[in-house]
Simulated assay, not measured.
Amino acid sequence: MYGFSVTVKDKFDDAITRVTEELQKEGFGVLTEIDVKATLKKKLDIDKLPYTILGACNPVLANQAINAEPDIGLLLPCNVLVREEENGAVTVAFMDPAAVLQLVNRPEVEGMAAQVKEKLERVRDALK
């Protein structure tokens, strides 16, 4: 499995705000916000339900990871997906850094990935 998720009671925009706030509590900032719905409408004239990818980064842990493996930036930042379902529910899904960063195959990176996963799981749990 490469991710974990939670269904929230928030409206879509409120969910993005709350996710961002909870990420900040765990030391993450949101570096990027990709509005996939708007992009697909603009580029392909396709209507989709709200679907936004947040690129979350914990600077302290990112710096440690880059120092351990300079090319690890290919696997950063941690993506957090906020998407609206057909039934109106909102799902927040998190990339599992432990699963993704095992590609690096370095013990020091595995330890950092576990720390990041714990932090993201706390964000998920705070959203319930």
Rank of each mutant, 00 (worst) to 15 (best):
G3K: 12
T7H: 06
V8E: 04
K9Y: 00
A15L: 12
I16C: 04
R18Q: 14
R18H: 13
E21P: 02
E21I: 04
L23D: 07
L23C: 10
Q24Y: 06
F28A: 10
L31M: 15
L31D: 07
T32L: 13
D35W: 09
V36S: 05
A38T: 10
K43D: 13
K43A: 11
L44S: 06
L44H: 12
D45N: 15
D47H: 10
K48V: 05
K48M: 10
P50F: 01
P50N: 05
Y51C: 02
T52P: 05
I53W: 03
L54K: 08
L54E: 11
L54Q: 06
G55I: 06
A56T: 08
A56M: 04
N58S: 06
V60T: 15
A62E: 06
A62M: 14
N63Y: 15
Q64C: 00
I66Q: 09
E69Q: 12
D71T: 14
D71P: 01
D71M: 14
L74S: 13
N79Q: 11
L81G: 00
E85V: 01
G88P: 05
V90Y: 01
V92H: 05
A93R: 11
F94L: 09
A98H: 00
A99I: 00
Q102F: 01
P107H: 04
A113M: 09
V116Q: 05
V116F: 03
K117I: 02
K119A: 15
K119S: 13
R122C: 05
R124S: 12
A126G: 09
A126F: 03
